[in-house]
Write a protein that binds this DNA or RNA. Structure first.
Length: 883
DNA sequence: CGCTCCCGCCATGCC
DNA sequence: GGCATGGCGGGAGCG
């Protein structure tokens, strides 16, 4: 094929190249020449007068179609193979000057014929995919250029992309070494790893481009700095590295190529639209983002895409969105590479699953990144994949509201200098974030809302990443009141550390930094109490509970990091030790708040009385707030239960005062509950500032109902709650701040209601561990024999009030704890699903639904699972526009 | 008309 | 100054 084309193409370029050619190509020339005399070709165009020129003109005018046809034939002939006889026919038409025509054609191959993709194919055809190790193939740019009949410039385009994948390496000036695909999988793996670090968050939600775009905006800030210039992976390969090559400033095309590939590898769908890729790349570059740059980026991406297409790694597709049809590329190359894999990482947080090489790459990457982001990354909370998750989170978070940032800052413990860094980062981000100045106090990532019914609500602002976690842990909520007594558990951020040492949470920190996230996920274990079917996951539950315990306080961060939580894991056990917290015990029992699905009404009813206006409303929902804890739990689960325990311990130790009272309890409760319903809380961003949307992640629609006045209970999965309603809920920052407070104090603290309003308005983040408050207590206990009773349940007076509004008792009360995870839209990045993802990634990312399901459900049990699909839908809705 | 993306000017940097 | 690289964007081909 190449030859064939070459001959044709040759005519043109040769001329230009000739000078060059002379030196290098000897063999080639002869071949080319035969085809067409250079001059002839040239003249025609320039010279209208020449006979040929006239013909051309005529032809084109007369039958452009034909011309095209022929061109096509030529183009495809090689590829398709046969084009055949047609040609002749066409020629006939033209007749007179077939020759002329032909020449014309030859002279002016169609654009397609000259496409970079085709050129690349020709280029690749010259070299074996898997060259023998022994033989080293060197490539001379000039030679190739002349052979292929193109200018050198074009060869650079190809070579740069190939070099980014290590198919070739530059040996010396004008000399490249052909490696073939031997290293391709390894390279891709590295890119994948690096990509996860960098883009994990982004891609997670990818399937919805909307989300992506959406996030991008948010993310930009965060991510930006990263690697900007530097090549993600510097392959200067060993063999043939030319000194000069490395030194040179960055080769943007090469870097872009790597990043582009990374996007595919990180993407769940394996489909990346050009505009999204361009946006991402631009953002990273910090370019202003003006339109022209975008266009330029896209042009470059086309160049890269053409080469990758020739390599058989991607193919062009179209993605239709609401907005319309967009050009996109789908990865058709290898998806899995032997060693790497997120899962691995997830499994063994401590150890890096990644191959050393990758690791090295990632390490470099990290180091390279200077900015805040990186630090944040390092700070990674605890997710199983500590580092990555953390990083991701961080990056994503940029937007986190100041408050959050502050929180972060506050806590930094010894644990982490890292944490500190994070805090700083957070701050910056926050500052950056314009929009999100959400709640002031709220900083806390997690707040628990006591729901009227007993359900506890925990709201965790989770970054996207969080979702996954959600499932896990709802239990945490339970605690509501436990606060006081239980409060003793300090929420321990420490737990977070687990994995990599990333302390997800800073031990003492009262606050977690959350980027402002637009979404909160509520996790509630809804169980029907009694019913309960126990979820298959009994074990899980237990673990959960444990997790919950630990998690509770610090949870938020942890959760995120942990993502896993949701999943299966059940590390919970570890926590148990924490025994302190009864949770474990409870865990077995489903928290159950009975309530599940219908509950609303009852609760609502009950709630009425109670004072907590707002809170009450929510209560109806029956949601239990697993809240913050959940995340943690998740994390724990995924990784290690131990952590959780530790966290708890630590927390206690450190912050006796702080101890997030609720957390433990919550955890218990949560534990008890087999499932917790999870809800996604969507921040009102755009226009709907006043509304909050709750989507049940797991569950059946209906499951949630918002009682309260404002919110009519909906059977539908999604519930919109006026922000006001939420406001009413007392949110307790579960962080140390609250937690620390002794019961009494705690209660007070707890009692404090965060005005949701603030949340609602802007950033909704809040999570209180303490929040746990939930009245549930009573119910819970009942439910769980084991539990110590807990007083914990009792809400502090204040809490109670708020809680009271909610009824604990009512069947509803039991309410599954729900955790809200808030995802910060913008900043969310940090936590983004992606981070979580590693462990579960699929579930999470796939869809919100998946979130709930995947992790917890799937693993734990299939039965109860809620349909991911439904969830997804919901999410989608939210993402796009709530209505 | 808008997506693609070829073409080649010209900046950058090394020699 | 020459040459190797490669960023960049105008503007044309193509559907």
């Amino acid at each position: 094929e190449n030859i064939f084309d070459r001959s044709r193409m040759a005519p043109k370029t040769p001329i230009k190249n000739e000078p060059i050619d002379l030196s290098k190509q000897k063999g080639c020339t002869p071949e080319r020449n035969p085809i067409t005399p250079v001059k002839i070709i040239d003249r025609p165009q320039p010279d209208p007068w020449t006979p040929t020129a006239n013909l051309k003109i005529l032809v084109s005018a007369a039958s452009p179609d034909m011309r095209d046809r022929e061109k096509k034939k030529e183009l495809f002939r090689p590829i398709e193979n046969s084009e055949q006889s047609d040609t002749p026919d066409s020629l006939q038409y033209d007749i007179v000057d077939d020759s002329a025509v032909d020449e014309f054609e030859k002279q002016r191959p169609s654009r397609k014929q000259k496409s970079l993709g085709l050129l690349c194919q020709k280029f690749l055809a010259r070299y074996p995919n898997y060259p023998l190790s022994t033989e080293k193939t060197t490539i001379s740019l000039d030679e190739v250029a002349s052979i292929l009949g193109v200018e050198r410039r074009r060869i650079y385009d190809i070579v740069n992309v190939l070099e980014s994948l290590q198919l070739v390496s530059r040996v010396a000036k004008n000399q490249y070494c052909w490696h073939g695909r031997h290293n391709l999988s390894q390279t891709l793996k590295m890119l994948q790893d690096a990509g996860e670090l960098q883009y994990g968050e982004l891609m997670t939600s990818q399937h919805k481009e909307q989300d992506l775009e959406y996030r991008f905006g948010e993310r930009k800030k965060a991510v930006i700095p990263d690697s900007q210039d530097r090549p993600l992976l510097d392959f200067s390969e060993p063999d043939c590295i030319s000194a000069s090559a490395n030194s040179r400033k960055d080769k943007s095309l090469r870097i872009m190529s790597q990043k582009f590939v990374m996007l595919f590898l990180v993407s769940k769908t394996k489909i990346v639209t050009l505009d999204i890729a361009a946006k991402i790349l631009i953002e990273e570059t910090q370019d202003t983002g003006d339109h022209s740059k975008f266009k330029t980026k896209v042009r470059r991406l086309y160049d890269i895409a053409n080469v990758l297409t020739s390599l058989g790694l991607i193919k062009k597709v179209h993605v239709t969105e609401e907005r319309g049809r967009k050009p996109a590329f789908k990865w058709i190359g290898p998806v899995e590479f032997p060693e790497n894999t997120d899962e691995l990482r997830g499994h063994s947080p401590a150890s890096n699953p990644l191959p050393e090489t990758q690791r090295g790459a990632s390490a470099r990457y990290q180091t390279s990144t200077t900015g805040k982001q990186r630090f944040t990354r390092h700070a990674s909370f605890n997710s199983a994949q500590p580092c990555e998750a953390a990083r991701r989170k961080v990056s994503s978070e940029p937007n986190s509201p100041r408050q959050e940032r502050q929180a972060c800052i506050v806590n930094s413990d010894e644990n982490c200098s890292k944490m500190i860094n994070l805090a700083a980062v957070c701050r910056q981000k926050i500052e950056e974030d314009t929009g999100s100045a959400k709640k002031s106090n709220i900083t806390l990532p997690v707040s628990l809302l006591p729901v009227p019914g007993d359900s506890d609500f925990c709201v965790n602002p989770l970054p996207q990443a969080v979702f996954p976690v959600v499932q896990a842990d709802v239990p945490s909520f339970s605690l509501p009141i436990g606060i006081s007594s239980q409060a003793s558990h300090p929420s321990i951020p420490a737990a977070s550390k687990t994995e990599n040492g990333k302390p997800t949470l800073v031990p003492n920190q009262p606050f977690l930094c959350f980027p402002s996230s637009s979404l909160f996920m509520l996790c509630g274990g809804l169980q029907e109490n009694s019913m309960s079917e126990p979820l298959p996951t009994a074990g899980d539950l237990g673990s959960r509970s444990a997790e919950a315990q630990a998690a509770v306080p610090p949870t938020v961060c942890q959760k995120r990091s942990s993502q896993k939580c949701s999943s299966p894991s059940a590390p919970g056990d570890d926590e148990e030790p924490a025994a302190k917290k009864q949770t474990l015990e409870h865990s077995d029992l489903p928290l159950s708040l009975v309530v599940p699905k219908k509950p609303e009404s009852p609760k609502a009813e009950s709630s009425p009385g109670s004072g907590c206006s707002a809170a009450v409303h929510l209560e109806t929902n029956h949601l239990d707030l697993a809240s913050p804890a959940a995340p943690e739990t998740a994390n724990k689960e995924s990784t290690k239960p131990l952590d959780c325990q530790e966290q708890g311990k630590q927390s206690q130790k450190k912050d006796p005062d702080d101890p997030p009272p609720g957390s433990e309890h919550i955890s218990k409760e949560n534990a008890n509950q087999p499932f917790q319903p999870q809800y996604l809380y969507v921040q009102p961003t755009a226009g709907l500032s006043s509304f909050n949307f709750l989507f049940s992640a797991n569950q059946a629609p209906g499951a949630i109902s918002l009682a309260a006045n404002q919110m009519p209970s909906l059977s539908v999965p999604c519930v919109m709650v006026p922000s006001a309603a939420l406001a009413s809920f007392p949110l307790v920052p579960f962080t140390s701040a609250l937690s620390p407070v002794p019961d009494s104090s705690f209660s007070a603290a707890a009692s404090t209601n965060f005005s949701v309003s603030s949340l609602a308005s802007t950033t909704p983040v809040f999570i209180s561990t303490t929040a746990v408050v939930t009245p549930k207590v009573s119910p819970t206990p009942s439910a769980d024999p084991q539990q110590p009773a807990h007083p914990a349940l009792h809400l502090s007076p204040v809490l109670t009030r708020s809680c009271s509004a909610v009824k604990l008792d009512s069947s509803v009360c039991m309410g599954h704890p729900v955790t809200l995870l808030k995802l910060q839209q913008p900043s969310s990045a940090p936590l983004t699903p992606k981070s979580i993802r590693p462990a579960h990634h699929e579930a999470f990312f796939k869809t919100p639904g998946s979130l709930g399901d995947p992790v917890a459900w799937k693993k734990n049990e299939g039965t109860q699972t809620r349909n991911a699909s439904s969830v997804q839908r919901r999410l989608e809705i939210s993402s796009t526009s709530p209505d």
